[in-house]
Structure formats: C-alpha cells, structure tokens
C-alpha cells in the first residue's frame, strides 16, 4: 500500500464520508444536512456530466441546465397526470434528455468556439421560456410534483432512502464515466479535444463521436434533473435559466475539469460556500467572486489539481 495514489484516497474517503452522512446526521438530529448533501450530489452528477463534454471533449456548453429542466419536468409532468411509476419517470427523463441533446447537439456541433457557447445558451433559454409559457404546468410559478414511485422496491419518501438512491447514481456514474473516458470511445473524444484536424486525418469522422458524447452528457444531467425533482418535490423553469448553466460550469472549472472527481468537489464547495456565505450576508457573491478568481488564477486545474498525484507529474 506504499504507493497508494493520494487522489484515489481522496475519492474513496469522500465517497465514504458521503455514505456516512445519513447515520451521522441522524444521530445529531440534523435532517437539514441530509438534504443539503443530497443536493450536493445531484449537482455533482450535473457537473460530472458537463465535465465529460467540457473537460474531456472540449465542448464548452453553456446550456447544460436545459437537461436538469428536461429531467425535472419529466417527473413533474408525469406526476401532474397522476403517473407515479418511477421506472417510467426515469425512463422518460432519459429518453427526453437524449432526444433534446441529440437535436441541440446536431445543430450546435456544426459550430465551434464562441458560437458553440452562444448557440447552446440560446437553446437553453428557449426551453426556459417554453417552461414559463406553459400555464398547464404552472408557468413561471413552477409545479409541485410527487416522488417517483418504485412500489415496494424503494420508498423515496424516506429521506435516507432517497439520499442513498442519489448516492448510488453518483457512484455509478462516476464509475461509468471512469470506464468511458479510458475506453476507445473516450480516447477518441479526448483526441478530438486535443487536435480535431489530426483525428480527421487519421480516419475518424469526428462529428458522430462528439454528438454521442453530447447526448450521453445530456442523459446523465437529465437523470440529475429527475433526482432533483424528487428531492425538492417542486420544479420551476428557473432550473433551466442561464445562471444555472453558469453555476454548473463554475462547479466544473472550480473542481478541475477533465478529472471526473474534480466536478464532484466543485459542486460540494460551491453549494456549501453558497450555503454558509449566504447565511453571513446576502451579498455573498462579494466573497465568492474573489475566491473564484483566486482559484482560477492560482489553481488552473481546480481544487482537484491541488491534490498531488502518486509521484512526479503526469499529463
């Protein structure tokens, strides 16, 4: 065990800590923290999914909150029509986010650079205004939703069960993405990020790989949206606002893009700081802003980049 990678230790320790939150907070009788950490995990999944296309694929999507909305509204709308089946909730969330990501990706990925940023942002805003305009689903007041029903299998009404349900998705997605980014497909999207022209010359039709990565990211974030709806039991169009997309982007950058676990740390630091600073002062951004600037200036690879690797440096 001499040469245990400090980063692996951090990841396992963090997951263990997250797993211990329910019994500890239960013993301390602090249910509020259970919900806070559940929320951290939901946004960790959203940030993780963005990291796949941003950190590994080099696609700066400024509209990632769109899929939070799709997943959230999938649960809310089905609930609205008294369809409570959890498998259906998550199934629809996945299929709908995949479809929307496919359309947005197929159009946006024909552009690059700042145009890509703008067009993903525009699509997200379109969905936001669509959410506002549909009165049937509450318009800008939002809509109450009941929790996904998994029958006798799981009772998401129980806070601890819901917490572990979200935890399982986070851990599962972390492992899935770890496999993905090191697979053949993962090497292709990283290659495209590094040098797309060369990838084409080697024989890769790059567009289809980028599109699939974009769709996978959309689906994972859609699941985060469905989890968020279960957690808050309330969905409003604001979860699709561009500020939300920006926050997810900041979580990824702050945590360290292209590292998978970085965005999880980023989501945790972002939401916990927001929580505590907002309790201190309503102008919490005054403190948070400079913190972010310092982090970006002095830790280019985010918080995760500050944790040393096994030995020496590695690209």
């Amino acid at each position: 065990m001499r040469s245990l990678n400090p980063r692996v230790v951090v990841i396992l320790a963090a997951l263990l800590l997250l797993a211990l939150v329910p019994p500890v907070m239960g013993a301390l009788n602090q249910p509020f923290y259970l919900e806070l950490f559940a929320r951290v995990m939901v946004f960790a999944i959203a940030a993780l999914s963005l990291d796949l296309i941003l950190g590994y694929g080099g696609m700066v999507s400024f509209g990632h909150a769109a899929y939070l909305g799709i997943g959230g509204y999938a649960v809310a709308i089905l609930s609205h029509y008294d369809i409570g089946n959890g498998f259906l909730h998550f199934g629809v969330a996945i299929v709908a986010s995949a479809a929307v990501a496919f359309v947005i990706g197929a159009i946006s990925l024909r552009t690059s650079g700042v145009y890509f940023i703008m067009i993903t942002l525009a699509f997200c805003q379109m969905l936001y205004f669509l959410g506002i305009s549909i009165e049937e689903f509450g318009g800008d007041d939002g809509i109450n939703t009941s929790r996904s029903d998994f029958g006798s299998l799981l009772d998401l009404g129980d806070a601890t069960t819901l917490y572990y349900f979200i935890f399982a998705f986070l851990a599962g997605f972390l492992y899935f993405l770890h496999r993905l980014v090191n697979s053949r497909f993962g090497m292709v999207i990283r290659g495209i990020n590094s040098n797309e022209r060369r990838m084409k010359a080697l024989g890769f039709a790059t567009f289809r790989y980028k599109l699939l990565a974009f769709v996978i990211a959309g689906v994972l974030c859609g699941v985060a949206g469905a989890l968020l709806a279960n957690l808050t039991q309330f969905v409003t169009p604001t979860i699709m606002r561009w500020e939300r997309s920006g926050e997810i982007l900041v979580m990824v950058l702050m945590g360290g893009m292209g590292s998978l676990f970085g965005p999880v740390l980023g989501a945790a630091v972002f939401l916990l700081l927001e929580e505590y600073l907002a309790a201190l002062t309503e102008h919490w951004m005054v403190i948070f802003g400079p913190f972010l600037v310092i982090l970006v200036l002095f830790a280019r690879r985010g918080i995760y980049g500050l944790i040393p690797e096994r030995s020496g440096r590695n690209g």
Partner: peptide, 13 residues
C-alpha cells in the same frame, strides 16, 4: 481508427 469500431465504451483502450 483502422482497427474496428471506436464505439466501445467499457474496456480500457
């Protein structure tokens, strides 16, 4: 690029 499909998502390349 020339050795079968790159739509493989699980095993380590």
């Amino acid at each position: 690029a020339h050795a079968g499909s790159s739509f493989r998502f699980w095993s380590a390349a």
